[in-house]
Design a protein around this nucleic acid. Structure first.
Length: 477
RNA sequence: GGGGCCGUAGGGUAGCCUGGUUAUCCUCCCGGCUUUGGGAGCCGGUGACCCGAGUUCAAAUCUCGGCGGCCCCA
């Protein structure tokens, strides 16, 4: 039994363990173990991410250890990370001459090598990515998948281009890619341009994807940074132009971590457990035989035939022949988020029928064995995802409100979720809002989602009355 | 950064204040019987006092230190 999802924090903590996503008993704060089932979800989700990136990025691997001398080169960057870096200070008993940082992110590991790889305009654009672990010494409350000292599944992409505009074009490409990824997971998102005081250390600007969790706080689930030539100047990454001149590259980087799985679990799950879209479910279909004494043979035979047929279609299917009672099996596979369930009892075996039920709906119906076709299952899977998407969007909408005074905004953020306001870009006005509303300014919309209708992009700043932009404010994870 | 609470089988707990028999109960797990259309029942079984030092005839219980976890405030 899970606690109700209403009590989100407790629900999340429990579902992670009960659905066997992570084992949280590892004896170091902020480090957790991926269980086999959780790791399969990770593998399925990340193979989609890989598929998207592999279209025009190359996968690489850079080392986890970064010498202090490199990490410290870019002034803004190191200032942003210095209080949360883990250091390797000894080799055996010998203190190291140059301390080694466990990467908090890989810019400073990669860019000295980019300098060697990039020589001419023909080497550009360079687009690579890696999926690796990163380390941050979090002092606040750590939480599996959400706030970690070892991020185990950081997909970071890094690109280099000839000029600012081409890098900016890549930023738009990356945003498109991430939209496709989260649409695939049926996870709704808001895309903001982070305010200057909250951008990635060393970036020209940062665009972030936020989703709205069931408790109304937002979770940052993806970021895209335009680095301009800031790092290129620091690491001396230059190329020879067609004219024979030398110019600094302009760079971007963008990342997604296992928070994407936190959002997948949190947005779709319910009081009974996980609800997974068909494509990322480790078990897509479960077949449950209902064995009455004396009538086992027929039921077992039809169940077996159905199992073989589904396997033949290439699905991840499980025939649950364990000796638990059917009800116990229903609960078990609902907890694990299996999208489609077939039940076969004596009645079905008699007629050659199967009972079908979907994870997100209460009702059951029955169809004949022969009507179970690959086309039908594909359609069910697509319909299921559409229902998940609609439900998630409705939930997101219910947690978004628009405000023209700060007290109402504060009240909404306290109780419900994301407040929208008009805000100018100044730090002063931003500080006033964060102070009064007890939330973080997420930034102005980079694009307003099509499911949020009726908002003008520009309006009068809620603080100073000057020209402002539609801006999100919320409590954040 | 400041303050508080807690550590007992795989999970959740009682016992600790007031030291003393075989360490409580639920769940999970294992074996058997029985049952199977929404978490069945009965019988039997495995499994624990975070680590170290101290006090004491005697420590899960008291003291100190370490490690680990949780909460609140800034």
């Amino acid at each position: 039994m899970l606690p109700p999802k209403q009590n989100f924090s407790e629900w999340f903590h429990e579902i992670i363990q009960q659905a066997e996503i992570m084992d949280i008993r590892y004896p170091v704060k902020g480090l957790y173990v991926w269980c086999p089932f959780g790791f399969k979800i990770r593998q399925l989700v990340y193979s989609k991410l890989r598929e998207l990136l592999d279209r025009d990025h190359d996968e690489v691997y850079f080392p986890a250890l970064i010498p202090e001398t490199e990490l410290g080169k870019e002034g803004e960057h190191i200032k942003g990370f210095e209080d949360e870096v883990f250091w390797v200070t000894h080799g055996g008993l010998e203190p190291l001459d140059v301390k080694l940082a466990l990467r908090p992110t890989s810019e400073t590991a990669m860019y000295p090598i980019f300098k060697l790889w990039i020589r001419s305009h023909a080497d550009l654009p360079l687009k690579v990515y890696q999926i690796v672990n990163t380390f941050r010494y979090e002092t606040k409350h750590t939480r599996p998948l959400i706030r970690l000292r070892e991020i185990t599944s950081f997909k970071e992409a890094h690109t280099a281009h000839r000029n600012y505009e081409e890098a900016e074009e890549q930023v738009r490409e990356a945003v498109k890619l991430y939209k496709e990824f989260y649409d695939f997971l049926a996870v709704p998102y808001l895309i903001f341009r982070r305010p200057d005081w909250d951008k990635f250390p060393g970036a020209d600007y940062t665009i972030a994807f936020d989703t709205i969790m069931p408790d109304g706080r937002t979770l940052q689930i993806g970021t895209v940074h335009h680095l301009a030539d800031n790092f290129a100047k620091t690491f001396d990454i230059k190329y020879e132009t067609p004219d024979g001149d030398h110019a600094y590259v302009h760079q971007t980087c963008y990342g997604i971590s296992e928070r994407c799985i936190a959002s997948l679990i949190s947005i779709h799950g319910d009081d009974l457990g996980l609800i997974l879209p068909f494509e990322v479910a480790p078990i897509q279909i479960v077949v449950i035989p209902i064995l009455y004494k004396g009538k086992e043979a027929q039921v077992e035979e039809l169940s077996r035939r159905l199992f073989e047929k589904l396997k033949g279609y290439g699905y991840r299917v499980l025939l649950d022949a364990s000796d638990e009672r059917p009800g116990a099996k229903y609960y078990k596979w609902e907890l694990k988020g299996v999208p489609i369930r077939f039940e076969i009892g004596p009645k079905e075996a008699e007629k050659g029928d199967v009972v079908v039920s979907f994870r997100d709906e209460k009702k059951k119906f029955s169809i004949s064995f022969d009507e179970v076709t690959k086309e039908r299952i594909e359609r069910w899977a697509e319909e299921l995802k559409q229902r998940l998407r609609n439900r998630a969007i409705e939930m997101a909408k219910s947690k978004i409100g628009f405000f023209e005074n700060l007290d109402d905004l504060a009240n909404w953020i306290e109780r419900r979720g994301v407040g929208l306001i008009y805000l100018c870009g100044s730090t002063e006005c931003g500080e006033v809002v964060e102070e009064k509303a007890k939330g973080s300014v997420l930034g102005r919309f980079e694009e307003i989602p099509d499911w949020l209708e009726g908002f003008e992009y520009k309006g009068r700043c809620i603080v100073c009355g000057g020209e402002g932009y539609l801006t999100g404010v919320a409590k954040t994870y």
